[in-house]
Design a binder for these strands. Structure first.
Lengths: 123, 123
DNA sequence: CAAACGTTTTAAGATAATTTGAAATACTTG
DNA sequence: CAAGTATTTCAAATTATCTTAAAACGTTTG
């Protein structure tokens, strides 16, 4: 990975002080990790889904309760739940007719990152 | 916000122990905050953009250097830079012909959250 | 000032995510 | 087992995001 033909001299100096461009690149996550992270952010990139995540962080819930909280049609809600499930952020157990959703450990971890960040999310 | 007509009894008990559904809802971020958070996650929901973020966390860079790192066409790169700028994750200063991009404080904060999480991102 | 350079913008097309309503599933109860 | 309830799936329509190539912009250099 050569540097471009011309770059600002002070930038070039900084890069050399860090052991060159290859050395810098070796510190950034590989493509597979980046894609995995991107997928998590994607799952959390919708306010409906975030609302579900934050609610489940307080209290596990059947779909009919989530429906009430979000004022969504079942089919729409189910679509969003599926996305959160696919990202391994939530899980559920069947209880008779009910599906009781709750956060996975990973989901809990992510929500708590957001909570810590919430002051900063305001910028 | 009434509870649904029928929900599992043990869930209902949990909710009452937490002071009722209204009390639980009062702990979740308001719609505006949720949308802001969703927007940040959206900006970070693409592996190209994450790569740029992680690179800039190591080293500020002109667009031509980022082009080299990402193997992207300028127009495509510029599109993604614009999204990161709009989310206030990166900024730049002009230096002659060059635009030198770097993370904002907020951007740095977000990348560092991701880094801390990277072990968990693997699940 | 013309040519070159680094970068951004634009508009069109391609792809992906979301919404909607209807139908399907699966469990429970009378 | 028929009817009811909770939930999911499906396919079609809508909307949002991403990609591409060409053109435009502003700065520098000969």
């Amino acid at each position: 990975m050569p540097l471009p033909d011309n770059i600002p001299a002070d930038m070039e100096r900084e890069i050399n002080e860090k052991g060159g461009i290859e050395s810098i690149i070796s510190n950034i996550p590989d493509e597979k990790s980046l894609e995995k992270m991107a997928g998590i952010h994607q799952a959390l990139s919708d306010s409906i889904r975030l609302k579900i995540m934050f609610f489940l962080h307080e209290q596990r819930a059947c779909v009919c309760l989530l429906r009430q909280i979000t004022s969504l049609a079942y089919s729409k809600l189910s679509y969003h739940l599926k996305i959160l499930r696919a990202a391994d952020l939530i899980t559920y157990e069947k209880n008779g007719n009910y599906a009781i959703y709750s956060l996975t450990d990973f989901g809990r971890f992510c929500v708590e990152k957001c909570v810590t960040a919430s002051g900063n999310y305001k910028r």
